[in-house]
């Protein structure tokens, strides 16, 4: 079993109103050091797979087919290590 973490974010030129709202709220709370805030979505898949390269490849395919709308979103895939897996 391999756990794959997929992080999905808006492309840079796409307005992220939620990120903007969060930034404004943090500024109101006095965190003036906050610059840009980007929101996104995290998807964690458990794959019946033993090879990490193949797992990455399969996950990328799933992103293109369903998980990500590539018109507005980008994604990043990482493999979760076994320790965290059991946590």
């Amino acid at each position: 079993m391999i756990n794959v973490l997929i992080t999905i974010q808006f492309k840079e030129d796409v307005l992220d109103p939620e990120g903007k709202a969060i930034a404004a709220s943090l500024h109101n709370l006095g965190y003036s050091e906050v610059g840009a805030v980007m929101t996104g979505r995290l998807i964690r898949l458990t794959l019946d797979e033993s090879d990490t390269a193949r797992a990455m490849q399969k996950a990328a395919k799933m992103c293109e087919v369903l998980l990500v709308n590539t018109i507005i979103e980008t994604y990043d895939i990482t493999i979760e290590d076994g320790e965290e897996n059991s946590a």
Binding site: V14, L15, P17, E18, A21, N69, I71, I72
Partner: peptide, 17 residues
Amino acid sequence: LTESELLPGALMRNVGL
């Protein structure tokens, strides 16, 4: 229709959230 790319572009979350 946009998700299936029968129409171009995308429908994003309302700007008012």
